[in-house]
Every structure is written in structure tokens, then in C-alpha cells.
């Protein structure tokens, strides 16, 4: 008896779920909103990620060059010392401002003050999140560079590589391996942070869920779906990072 009641309950739950799902997503082709939102979230995250890494590498290289070579460059003087000091100062200002203000405020400043004429929020989102992420990635990379044994620099320099070549061929490849877990963390944070892109009038995943909820007066299905999609995206991302990490680790067998 109890078993039959249980089966009936499960079946009714299932039919209820199907009808709710049909009503929320299929009717009025509302699932298209979700797909659009998902794609926009991907675009903004992906774009910001690439931009953040590029900014991060450059800033980390400048900052750690300054930290490492400050003494010796002062002895040798020259133009390089002046240029590096100025660049390092600019980087510090960038880091302070970006890390010192909320990302939503940066987003709105980009959208309403800098790119006033741009109606499409996606490129603005990529720009703002890229600039924001760059600051955090830069510090992650700098920590990675500083963690690499100074002997590696010396070996590179003693072979005749200049500073930039040493960085490019010897230090940065090793640095990437060292910071991969932390970097993955930052990417996960970035992915979830893009959920505030709705401020730019972009229909991202979160906004899509919100819109559907608003128009159907049924919030639990769209919001739980949104949460689930984020979760799966994060899981995929950390899985990819794990695979990459294992591949890079092959030299440590």
C-alpha cells in the first residue's frame, strides 16, 4: 500500500514538474531567453578572461621586474630604471583603484560614463570585467613569478637571454603551472560575478531567469534552473583546469 502511494506521489510530482517546465520554458518560447542569457554569460566571461590574462601577464611582469631588479638597476642607472619606475607606479595605481571599488560601480561607470554611445552591453561588459579581472590575475601571476626560484632567472640570464626573453621562455611557462589552481579560482569567481551584467541591460543568464520569473509569476523553476546551469559551468571549468594541471605536471613524474 505504502509503496503504491509512493509511486503515485512520484508520478504526480513528475507530471507537475513537466507541466511547470512546459509552462515556464516552452510556452512563448521563453527557453530562447535562457539560451541567449547563457550565451551572453559565456561571451562576457570568455572575453573578460582573455583580457584579464593578457593584462595580468603584462602587469605582473612589470611589477615583478621592478621588485626583483630594483637594486641592480639603480646601480646601473640608465633609461630602463626610469621607465620601469614610472610603469610600476602606474600599475600600482591601477591595482589600487580597481581592487578598491565594487565591480558593479566599475560596470556602471563603463556603461554610463565611458561608452555612452554604445547600446550593446556585451562588449562593455567584457571591457569592464576584463579590466577588473586583470587586476586580480596580475597579483596571482606576480605571486607565481616571485615563487619561482631565482636560480631559474640566473640560469636564463647567464645563457644570454635578456630580461624579457627570460620571462617569456623560462619564467612565465613555469609560472602558469604554479598558479593554475588559484587562477581557476579567479575564473570561477569571474563567471559568477558576471551575474550582475543585468545592470548594463544585457540579458545574461541571471537576468534571463529573472525576466522569465517576472513574466510567469513563477520564480522557483527559472531561478533553480539558473543556479543549476551556473553550477554545471563551474564544474566543467574546474574539470578542465584539473585536466590541464595534470598535463602540465608530466615533467614531475
Amino acid at each position: 500500500m505504502i509503496f503504491r502511494r509512493f509511486i503515485q506521489w512520484v508520478v504526480s510530482l513528475y507530471t507537475e514538474f513537466v507541466s511547470e517546465f512546459t509552462f515556464v520554458f516552452i510556452e512563448g518560447n521563453r527557453y530562447q531567453q535562457m539560451i541567449k542569457g547563457f550565451l551572453n554569460t559565456l561571451k562576457i566571461t570568455g572575453g573578460a578572461l582573455v583580457m584579464g590574462v593578457i593584462i595580468g601577464v603584462f602587469i605582473a611582469a612589470i611589477r615583478s621586474s621592478y621588485d626583483k631588479n630594483f637594486e641592480s638597476m639603480r646601480l646601473r642607472k640608465g633609461v630602463g630604471y626610469c621607465v620601469l619606475t614610472i610603469l610600476n607606479g602606474l600599475c600600482k595605481i591601477y591595482l589600487t583603484v580597481i581592487r578598491g571599488t565594487p565591480v558593479v560601480v566599475q560596470l556602471m561607470i563603463s556603461y554610463f560614463l565611458i561608452f555612452v554611445d554604445t547600446k550593446d552591453g556585451v562588449p562593455v561588459g567584457i571591457f569592464a570585467f576584463g579590466i577588473n579581472s586583470g587586476a586580480y590575475v596580475a597579483e596571482i601571476f606576480r605571486a607565481g613569478i616571485m615563487s619561482i626560484d631565482n636560480g631559474q632567472f640566473e640560469a636564463g640570464r647567464s645563457l644570454g637571454f635578456n630580461y624579457i626573453q627570460t620571462m617569456r621562455h623560462i619564467i612565465i611557462p613555469q609560472m602558469f603551472k604554479a598558479v593554475l589552481p588559484t587562477l581557476c579560482n579567479e575564473f570561477i569567481a569571474l563567471l559568477k560575478e558576471t551575474s550582475v551584467a543585468g545592470y548594463l541591460g544585457v540579458v545574461d543568464l541571471t537576468k534571463a531567469g529573472n525576466i522569465i520569473g517576472g513574466s510567469t509569476f513563477s520564480y522557483y523553476m527559472p531561478l533553480l534552473s539558473v543556479a543549476l546551469i551556473y553550477l554545471v559551468m563551474v564544474m566543467v571549468l574546474s574539470r578542465l583546469a584539473g585536466i590541464l594541471e595534470r598535463r602540465l605536471r608530466k615533467s614531475e613524474r
Binding site: G151, Q152, E154, A155, S158, Q174, E252
Partner: peptide
Amino acid sequence: MGMVFQHFNLFPNM
């Protein structure tokens, strides 16, 4: 000027 170090300093990722 080739240089050899006490701690080898080979590039571990290569």
C-alpha cells in the same frame, strides 16, 4: 660566458 651553478638550475618544465 657559460655558467654552471651549485644547484644546477635546469629548467624543470623542459
